[in-house]
Amino acid sequence: MNHKILLVEDDEKLGSQIVDHLTKAGFQVAWLKDGAGAMAVDPSGYALLVLDIMLPRAHGLDVLKRWRERSDNPVLVLSAKSDAAVKVRALELGADDYMTKPFWPEELLARVAARLRRPVLSRHNRLDVGPISIDVEARRIEVEGHALELTPVEFELLISLARRAGAAVTRAWLVEHVLDPEKEGNERTLDVHVSRLRKKLGSHGNLLATVWGVGYRLRENGSER
């Protein structure tokens, strides 16, 4: 990935922990410890900016305002306050997301990754999810270069999941949008379609994961959630 991230956090311990976690996750991290320094920064030089609200020598919201005058790069705000007013104000000023302390390092990494993730849909008529390539217009699917023969329902099912790759889609939604209502499709019918599709994906069948209590998800790689 090798994205450049700016962290503005005045607490030494927390700051060095965050830097440590982000560096281990493969990011280049610059760390500033006060608001005045953050004011002077050019935000366009960073892929993402992580900003603590309570800072010495300048308020985080003022820093955010200054940054927003110069750039639209994503800003993730950290706050120890559970006060809704600060969060709402931060979002109004153009913050993309906020996190309340305390948070798990995994939580922070997931948020950062979510902000940096490129859109899955590269072009309107083409979807790429892991080894799967879908040409929506031509209705053609390839897995690692090998064409896949699918029924219309299986094709719609795969496209629906691929459009939101990584996110779980409920059974109810799939039944409503994928199955043919005239054939009285229900969740049981859906499960049958899914298991057939999984079989056709062969060794990549585990990409099509069942989400307990929810429905299904198309994973972008084998290990992701």
């Binding site: 948070f103 798990w104 995994e106 939580e107 779980a168 889609v169 307990w212 929810v214 429905g215 959630r225």
Partner: peptide, 16 residues
């Protein structure tokens, strides 16, 4: 927020 602790406990936490 709860994903880390759920994973630690071996509880599968998911959403849609």
């Amino acid at each position: 927020r709860h994903k880390t602790i759920a994973a630690e406990k071996g509880v599968e936490l998911d959403f849609a």
